[in-house]
Design a protein around this nucleic acid. Structure first.
Length: 902
RNA sequence: GGGCGCUUAGCUCAGCGGUAGAGCGCUUCCUUCACACGGAAGAGGUCACUGGUUCGAGACCAGUAGCGCCCACCA
């Protein structure tokens, strides 16, 4: 017995009222967990890119969660053993900066607190924001397995990090060395190359002349000079050489001589080095090994001293003589003034420099020499390139292959030590007794070399990405050989924004191959960035950030998800325009109301929700909607498998709104009203079956409204829940395309019917016929007579006509009629009194013109022998048929014109 | 200095080798018993430009222009 005959549901979908309920229901029933019992089915695994614990989720996270959830839900419905591992990232510098800022507001700082207390403060922060991020992912509907949630700093992952550090050290791939590194004077830490953003900045190219030291016996002669160009005059104080290209004839005789550094008077050699480009500046370069990467290299080649004139605080050091203590830019200004007064400035040109800035604090980076830990990358990069080359790893969209390859080919060693407190502390101990260093998986309290206890652990922590790059396997328990690791590694898809290919994706590939001998995922799917309506990147400082929570509050999660999923194509950025979200909120409402109608209309007639393969079409419309659904199902499945989620979503939307709601549901009203009980039952069955299938197709995109509606549908149709095909839509089977339902004839017949109806409606509009008025209609249907006779009631209802009068042909055209053509079917609307002859003639003229144009086009094509012989035969055939059709049409139009003209 | 992407209806975007599409906006009409977060109909594009490939090109190739992004140790 059906539970309720009277179905009372609100007339508008209320997302806020249902979303939380269904998320809890899914989670409590364990649907987010993998189903290893799905034996024989493939695994489908995604490691969720862990959001930083620095704050709230933004739209970038929302699109990530949406896309991944679509893939996960789709595969879950297909019966795959599906696992989505969530987690969060401790985000070293980012988090430490935020908490330090908080401390500053309280008038204290981390040094006053001490390391231990400070870390406690950070953990407090983390706990608070971690749960906030979890909640937000729940709001987004993310069906990830929370029982497997990981944090990059939790015990297990810390173990992975140490394991990796020690192994790489033992393999000689991690080393400690004094190198020139990117130093952020605000974060007070070294950074990797990736954490430096280059920004074109208006600067100056200052030409400075250095006096040469006179040769022996030349004292007293006029001073000789050598000029150089620099964008950073303050580093002059740290110059230890001047370099020229060895092939440069201008300077050949100066090589080997000494120049004198202005102001401080240091005597420095003029050396020849290939790195110098003769065509730039003066062709001579000042060399400051302590403050420039190129100069550092030159310094190595020529064994030059390194004089550090800028300190880690970005102020001039005592080496800077009179400038000691000044800020680097202040010193620049002052020094240039002094050089001017000394007459040593040749000229100053405007010049644009790519200034490196800290990704976090936006501070100009200072290249400084410092002792840091590095990972030797080349040996790791080679196999990572190989994986893509041989196709073990597929990148979608493919064009990012080049980005990936280019970076790996030119890879530099990775500076992994950070002068911070928040992060994985470097597992290295130094003995104050014997001076030896110990690298260990376990904490060390006694020096293994001398048994002293005077040990100090390295003060620094590791780059935050040093834990992230292990994510796909560290989250599964590695280095332990857990059941999860064995079953779910390698994962299936890595889905993330293209902006972190280098930071994260490429490094994960390297780590996966190196430590587990297998690429960590089969496919890398890269989505674009979400921008504001003007196309600008969203950022807090610009104040154009759209908060996904606010969007969800106002329009519902499904609307946001559907918008994010369908607003662009893979790898392309999207502008988030509010109108689009509104439109998709409306779509959710459309789903709701169509479903509400179907449930109400079929409550009496229905028995259950039939399987789509079991329903029997009785009418043309039945055949047509089943055909359309079958084709859609095949297409949607293919598109999702190809990661064309947007196109899949758009097609499902179009089917549901246009085909199902606008046409089939309207037709079903006629079939339900006019048919006998059997017809009613059949129609009700199709209404429900197609709705059921549509909800399944939509579920990955819009999980909440579809689950809500699906549950209503089954509760009102199949009283015994044990009889349902699944306990919930989230675990219902993804539809199979029912190829038996494919029916091209139904499609073309229905197209004709639609055209007839649309033309009549249009004519009524043109003639200003009262909407409620039923008009007379006479059809000359030719060969379509039988088909259309059966559809007469639909024309009557949908075009609001009287009972159509159908004929094969009309020996005499109805007088005082508007005449229309749909395909080759002639339509006459006797509209005595309403017919405006001039208007009608004008309309005919216009139609004749377009038809003639079309005929000319086809004739031209067919007259082209190359086309007839070379084009595919079916294309040629189609054009021929079209020509006949159009000519027939033209004849009829002309006839009609002649009649009216009389 | 390299590399990549975009340029299709007023706006936001699909389409990617065989008659130009969607949503929003616009015009007209409709409170017909699922939905006005709705329905019906309509107007509106030389698919940036120039060459080429092809019987046929928004769609493929080459180049140009504008916009955007990424990488980069010519100081």
């Amino acid at each position: 017995m059906i539970e309720q005959k009277k179905i009372e549901l609100p007339t508008a979908y209320e997302p806020q009222a249902v979303e939380g309920k269904w998320y809890r229901f899914w989670e409590e029933n364990g649907y987010f967990k993998p189903r290893p019992q799905a034996a024989g089915r493939p695994t489908f695994v995604i490691s969720m890119p862990p959001p930083n614990v620095t704050g709230a989720l933004h739209l970038g996270h929302a699109i990530t969660a949406t896309v991944e959830d679509i893939l996960i839900r789709y595969h879950r419905m297909r019966g795959d053993d599906t696992l989505w591992v969530p987690g969060e990232d401790h985000a070293g510098i980012a988090t430490q900066t935020v908490v330090e800022r908080q401390l500053a507001n309280e008038g204290t700082d981390r040094h006053k607190l001490g390391r231990e207390q400070f870390l406690e403060r950070v953990w407090q922060w983390v706990h608070q924001y971690k749960s906030r991020i979890q909640d937000q992912h729940r709001r987004l509907g993310a069906s990830c397995d929370w029982s497997r949630e990981r944090f990059t700093l939790d015990e297990g992952l810390s173990k992975s990090v140490r394991e990796v550090f020690v192994r790489l050290y033992e393999e000689g791939l991690i080393y400690r060395g004094e190198r020139i590194i990117n130093w952020c004077p605000v974060c007070m830490s070294a950074l990797s190359d990736l954490e430096v953003n280059h920004v074109d900045t208006q600067g100056a190219l200052t030409y400075v002349r250095y006096p040469l030291k006179p040769l022996e016996g030349q004292e007293g002669d006029a001073t000789e000079y050598i000029s150089v160009a620099t964008t950073r005059p303050e580093t002059i104080l740290g110059d230890t050489a001047i370099a020229v290209n060895p092939k440069d004839p201008r300077y050949a005789k100066l090589v080997g001589r000494l120049a004198v550094v202005p102001v401080i008077g240091r005597e420095i050699p003029i050396v020849a080095d290939e790195a110098v480009e003769s065509s730039f500046g003066t062709g001579a370069v000042k060399v400051t090994p302590a403050h420039d990467p190129t100069d550092f290299e030159i310094g190595l080649r020529h064994d030059l001293p390194r004089v550090q004139v800028i300190g880690f605080d970005a102020k001039m050091t005592t080496e800077a003589g009179p400038y000691a203590g000044q800020d680097r830019y202040e010193a620049r200004k002052n020094l240039v003034e002094e050089l001017k007064s000394l007459g040593l400035i040749v000229k100053i040109e405007e010049y644009t420099v790519p200034l490196g800035r800290c990704q976090r604090s936006d501070t100009p980076i200072e290249p400084l020499i410092s002792k840091q830990w590095f990972v030797k990358m080349a040996p790791l990069a080679t196999p990572a390139m190989g994986a893509v080359k041989v196709g073990l790893l597929k990148i979608v969209p493919e064009r990012f292959n080049k980005t990936y390859m280019d970076w790996l080919e030119n890879i530099h060693d990775w500076c992994i030590s950070r002068q911070l407190w928040w992060g994985h502390r470097i597992p290295v101990w130094y003995c104050d007794n014997c001076g030896q260093m110990t690298v260990s998986r376990e904490d060390v309290t006694v020096c293994p070399h001398c048994e002293s206890t005077r040990l100090r652990q390295d003060e620094d922590v590791l780059d935050t990405w040093f834990s992230s790059w292990l994510w796909p396997f560290s989250t599964l328990g590695w280095p332990e050989v857990t059941a999860d690791l064995q079953r779910y590694y390698p994962t299936t898809v890595m889905e993330t924004g293209y902006d972190i290919i280098f930071f994260w994706v490429a490094r994960m590939v390297m780590a996966g191959i190196h430590f587990l001998g297998a690429v960590p995922f089969q496919t890398i799917y890269l989505h674009g960035l979400v921008r504001d309506a003007k196309g600008e990147k969203m950022s807090k400082s610009k104040g154009n950030v759209i908060d996904p929570l606010e969007v969800m509050d106002e329009f519902g999660t499904d609307a946001l998800r559907f918008t994010l999923a369908t607003s662009s194509t893979p790898g392309n950025d999207m502008k988030l325009v509010p109108e689009r979200i509104v439109g998709n909120r409306n779509f959710a409402n459309k789903i709701w109301n169509a479903s509400r109608f179907v449930m109400m209309a079929t409550a009496e007639a229905g028995d259950g929700v039939p399987e789509i393969s079991e329903v029997t079409p009785r009418t043309l419309a039945d055949r047509w909607i089943l055909h359309r659904l079958a084709r859609l199902t095949g297409e949607a499945t293919r598109l999702i498998d190809e990661f064309q989620l947007g196109e899949a979503g758009r097609q499902i939307n179009e089917f549901f709104w246009s085909d199902y709601c606008d046409w089939y549901v309207e037709i079903a009203k006629v079939q339900m009203r006019e048919g006998d009980e059997q017809a009613q039952r059949a129609t009700a069955g199709i209404l429900r079956a197609v709705l059921d299938q549509s909800l399944r197709l939509l579920h990955p995109f819009m999980p909440f409204v579809t689950e809500e509606v699906w549950q209503h549908l089954y509760r009102t149709s199949v009283a015994d829940a044990a009889q349902w095909p699944a306990p919930a839509l989230i675990v219902a089977a993804w539809p199979e395309s029912n190829s038996a339902a494919l029916d091209e004839a139904a499609e073309s017949d229905f197209d004709l019917l639609q055209e007839i109806i649309v033309r009549i409606r249009d004519a009524r509009n043109q003639a200003n016929v009262e909407p409620a008025k039923r008009v007379q209609v006479i059809l000359a249907a030719g060969s379509q007579l039988a088909t259309l006779t059966a559809q007469a009631p639909l024309i009557e209802f949908l075009a609001r006509t009287e009972k159509p009068q159908l004929h094969a042909s009309l020996p005499e055209k109805p007088a005082q009629s508007m005449s229309l053509l749909a395909g080759s079917v002639e339509i006459y609307l006797p509209l005595a009194g309403l017919l405006d002859l001039d208007k009608e003639l004008a309309r005919l003229e216009k139609e004749i013109a377009t038809t003639e144009l079309e005929i000319a086009r086809i004739q031209g094509k067919l007259a082209n022998e190359a086309f007839v012989t070379r084009a595919k035969p079916e294309v040629v055939q189609k054009e021929r048929e079209r020509l006949v059709e159009q000519q027939e049409r033209l004849n009829k139009l002309r006839e009609r014109r002649a009649e009216l003209a009389n």
